[in-house]
Nucleic acid binder design. Structure first.
Lengths: 149, 149
DNA sequence: TATTGTTATACTCTATAACTATA
DNA sequence: TATAGTTATAGAGTATAACAATA
């Protein structure tokens, strides 16, 4: 869209779609985050998995897949790797022998904590474009939108 | 992470990573947006393309690819479709006959406007989880983060 | 019969390199 | 030589269905 002012035609930038804004920010964030995770030998989904398990062990792989919004069939190969690397442990649930519980090993906890520390530092730099009081407000708003009742 | 309070152990939910929050919101947004776009016969990238062209015609396909953050090789098939559907026009630049300019047709403008109207309505519903004064603040903050100087 | 974990398969998306025509 | 557009191909990511073990 353009508008004529003082005999010249200049482009007017309208409000962007929410999706466009978030996509831009996500790309910035991912571009900064990928090398950090790579340095810790983790993929994005591996980190998401460790994060979920750090907060709460999984009662089954299916529950874990749902918790992080990942496909249960793809989770298998991912857990295979994490188990092979000694970051997680899978154990049959005695109560329901179909299910496997998943939890972090001490190495898994340490790896997650180390990666998270680096990511938090990066986030602080990224948010430095905003005044300090807005940073907390933003986090609160995003949390509300991410977890609708 | 857990903490013991009054002889019981309850999980403590720490602040989520910014990436996790944004990913959740993005998924919500995309889940709502996909059916709307499909109703208008547009893919996500097709909509992004129309949005960019609605604001400003492209001096070349390469410039368009960069503007929307899409791969120039994949853009070609997308533009082929949009052109076939009569939504855009490609024209050789007389000044540089290697380049092709890209602009919307009237049909393209109409299709974009119709899709955008639906998407804006959806965004308003999604943001209704926030008090009105926070909605504007959020948009301002996201715009700042999406366009760093 | 339904569910968990698993495997296999097909499909889409994405990244890379190479080719042409213009500059 | 460098750039815009294009094509082809290989790789990663994703979705679907089917199977064995257990409930």
């Amino acid at each position: 869209m353009c508008v004529s002012i003082c005999h010249s035609t200049i482009p007017v930038v309208e409000d962007e779609d929410l999706g466009a804004l978030l996509a831009r920010i996500m790309r910035r964030l991912m571009d900064a985050e990928h090398p950090l995770l790579r340095a810790h030998g983790l993929s994005m989904w591996a980190y998401a998995t460790l994060t979920s398990l750090a907060e709460q062990p999984a009662t089954s792989q299916l529950a874990l897949a749902k918790a992080i919004g990942y496909d249960k069939t793809r989770l298998i190969a991912l857990l295979d790797e994490l188990e092979h690397d000694g970051l997680i442990v899978r154990e049959r649930d005695p109560a329901d022998r179909r299910a496997q519980t998943v939890r972090l090993t001490p190495e898994g906890e340490a790896r997650h904590a180390a990666a998270k520390a680096d990511i938090r530092k990066m986030e602080i730099e990224l948010l430095a474009d905003l005044p300090p009081d807005e940073q907390g407000a933003l986090r609160a708003m995003l949390t509300k939108l991410a977890h609708p009742e």
